[in-house]
Write a protein that binds this DNA or RNA. Structure first.
Length: 650
RNA sequence: GCCUCUUUAGCUCAGAUGGCAGAGCAGCUCACUCGUAAUGAGCAGGUCGCGGGUUCGAGUCCCGUGAGAGGCUCCA
């Protein structure tokens, strides 16, 4: 007998060699039906694998990441089997389960090109294989045998993977006619895979290295129920409707022009209005936090970036230097603002009493992103950072860091951003070559960040080896409509630039000292931030941000004069209004303006004119009844103020 | 940059097999002067992304090129 310990610490005796499936069955038939994988003493296992000794276990169902993982990993093998039967001689790279589904990287040789049209055929073969109910069989194997097997198949990718394995135990999994190198775990057999959809084909470099061969990657997803697949596909459709590129076009916020160049956004009046409101807001907040505005040109001497080290590291990613015709001097379109700010710091001498100094600039920068990387407003070649650089004494670092966290949290709150993730990126201590600066400084900077996030109660993920070469950082990430993760806010500690630009301050000891620099950008870039904001709100912006806040709808042309009067009164109170003077019926005007996501619609006709009133309609919320113009004005302004005030006190 | 796909009117999209470029919405004109999510009629609008080629004939087939989309370690 062996002792099995459950997650709630209860224990139970079982015969030696019992499987996860049998344990689940002993608890309930329903659980047995749903269990997909098992954690045994911290290792993920197949539920069909016999447990030979005392163990702590956790059973995983579809609802658990581990359960889905086994399901999708098995699906990847199933797809591989289908591919091998359709395209003999195919070679396989890697085929893991991912966040939503799975993929497999394959090499079909030089003749065969896979296209979307081939996917239904592969799906069909997968269904046929599912019907065979083949079991997934695990087998321990020696490295030599493993190499022999794939050598025989001529699969150089698997050979490379096996050769790189150092942890001793190598396992194969087979189902039907297909055998793969795999750590597992897998389902007992293929029968739970009820719904299959292959989603797309993409090129993927072998091991992510663009110097190496590009394989064909096939993405797919599977579910235990057909209904779940339908729901998933529907969810994808819904997400597409929130896409900032689509909404940006609909609401006329921004556009791109081939003549101007790809990756160079053009802000239309309504988008520029939104952008200006955000910038005004942030400027106001920053003044409160003691930031000083600075302004620097769009180009800088190449030497500036050689000094900063950016030229060496990011020169390829910059637009190439502009040469002056006579002197032959070289200038770069600025890829970042920090070197300029360092020179502003250097223009004066500083006492320890002056620090911290916080320079803020909405600086537009230009980076030569690869054409394939460009994406709507989230990845562009010209964008405006809400940038600032804080120069402080080492003893002020933590406090300053906390203040920056405060400012970012404040701003996110003002915009109803709550589902962000924070990530601390620290250095990889085993790879000292990669980083500059003394151990002591790194220790200080890293602990300052960790302590600061602890004090603010932020739940953070810590990533080792992800720090910038000049210092550790804290990033704020959010997801877009399609689930892709984007970095927005960032706070970075930098010992490098003060060194390179020889920044100093005079300490109380009358000696020169090096300040520490903090780079920070709460939005990251205006472009990316607005893209994410659009997707989060589906274009229904907070009242204070909406480009048009109120639209006045006259019942008929007779009422246009009164509409103008209302508009003027509201405009005088800083409310942004439009009038829909079209010769349309009121129902049509309401519909069109609702679709434009204008927060308030005011309907005016004979009934309203009598007592200087307006009929109020709130976007998405229908008729709110009549109100005097004056009352609406106050109601509206109070709403905007309360919104901003309520954030202030938090 | 590389792989796959897309590119037709301002927008969304139809246009097997090569044979006279279409619809809905938006726009303009006219009628109606209207009460809470689409009034009706008419008009106008395209060098089919661009450049070559095959053909009697190309939106459609071939080659090149621009732009856009999805993807390019989430590691057996």
């Amino acid at each position: 007998m062996i002792k099995i310990t459950f997650p709630d610490k209860n224990t139970k005796e079982f015969n030696q060699g019992i499987t996860g499936y049998e344990i689940a069955k002993s608890i309930s038939p329903r659980l047995a039906k749903e269990v997909l994988s098992i954690t045994v003493n911290g290792n993920l296992w197949d539920i069909s694998r016999p447990i030979k000794e005392d163990a702590e276990i956790v059973l995983h169902k579809w609802e658990d990441e581990e359960g889905k993982h086994a399901f999708w990993h098995s699906s990847a093998h199933l797809m591989a089997e289908a591919l091998e039967s359709l395209y003999p001689g195919i070679k396989f790279g890697i085929g893991p389960a991912i966040e939503n589904g799975f993929y497999y990287d394959v090499d079909l040789g030089n003749e065969k090109i896979l296209t979307d049209a081939d996917l239904p055929k592969i799906e069909q073969r997968m269904r046929e294989l599912v019907a065979q109910k083949n079991t997934y069989n695990r087998k321990n194997i020696s490295k030599k045998e493993a190499l022999n097997y794939f050598d025989g198949k001529g699969d150089e990718y698997k050979l490379e993977l096996i050769n790189d394995l150092t942890d001793g135990e190598i396992t194969f999994y087979s189902q039907g006619n297909f055998t793969d190198l795999c750590r597992g775990p897998h389902l007992p057999d293929t029968s739970p895979i009820k719904a299959i959809k292959l989603l797309s084909i993409a090129g993927a470099y072998w091991r992510g290295d663009e110097q190496r061969k590009q394989l064909t990657r096939i993405y797919g997803i599977t579910f235990p129920k057909k209904k779940m697949l339908d729901e998933y596909l529907e969810m994808l459709e819904e997400a597409k409707k929130r896409d900032h590129r689509k909404i940006g076009k609909e609401l006329q916020l921004f556009t791109f022009s081939q003549k101007v160049g790809s990756g160079l956004p053009l802000w239309l009046p309504k988008g520029a209005m939104l952008r200006d409101r955000l910038i005004d807001f942030l400027k106001k907040v920053q003044v409160r936090y003691g930031y000083l505005p600075v302004s620097t040109p769009h180009i800088g001497h190449k030497d500036l970036y050689v000094t900063s080290g950016h030229y060496e590291k990011y020169g390829k990613d910059s637009f190439q230097p502009i040469k002056t015709p006579n002197e032959g001097e070289e200038f770069l379109l600025k890829p970042m603002n920090c070197p300029h700010h360092c020179e502003i710091y250097n223009s004066q001498q500083h006492s320890y009493k002056d620090l911290p100094i916080r320079y803020a600039e909405f600086g537009t920068v230009y980076r030569y992103e690869q054409s394939g990387e460009l994406h709507g407003l989230t990845r562009v070649r010209g964008f405006t950072q809400d940038d600032a650089h804080i120069f402080c004494r080492p003893d002020q670092l933590k406090e300053e860091f906390i203040k920056v966290i405060d400012i970012i949290l404040y701003i996110f709150k003002a915009l109803d951003f709550d589902n962000f993730v924070t990530q601390i990126s620290l250095r990889d201590k085993n790879d000292k070559e990669k980083y500059i600066g003394s151990d002591e400084n790194w220790e200080k900077a890293e602990s300052a960040i960790i302590e600061a996030t602890n004090e603010k109660g932020l739940e953070t993920i810590i990533e080792y080896g992800e720090a910038a070469f000049y210092g550790p950082k804290l990033d704020f990430m959010v997801r877009d409509a399609i689930g892709r993760k984007w970095q927005l806010g960032t706070i970075q500690v930098d010992y490098n630039l003060p060194e390179r630009f020889e920044l100093t301050y005079t300490g109380s000891d009358n000696q020169k000292h090096r300040p520490v620099m903090i780079h920070r950008a709460p939005f990251g870039s205006m472009e990316r931030f607005i893209a994410v904001l659009i997707e989060h709100t589906a274009g229904k912006f907070p009242l204070w941000l909406a480009p048009d806040q109120v639209v006045i709808l006259p019942i008929s042309e007779k009422h246009n004069e009164y509409a103008k009067k209302v508009s003027k009164i509201l405009n005088n109170s800083d409310i942004r209004t439009l009038i829909d003077e079209r010769n349309e019926k009121i129902g049509k005007k309401i519909r069109d303006n609702e679709l434009k996501r204008i927060p308030y619609l005011l309907i005016v006709g004979d009934n309203e004119i009598q007592n200087e009133e307006v009929s109020v309609r709130k976007q998405g919320d229908g008729d709110k009844g009549k109100m005097s113009i004056e009352k609406f004005k106050n109601y509206f302004n109070e709403k905007v103020e309360n919104l901003l005030k309520s954030i202030d006190t938090k």
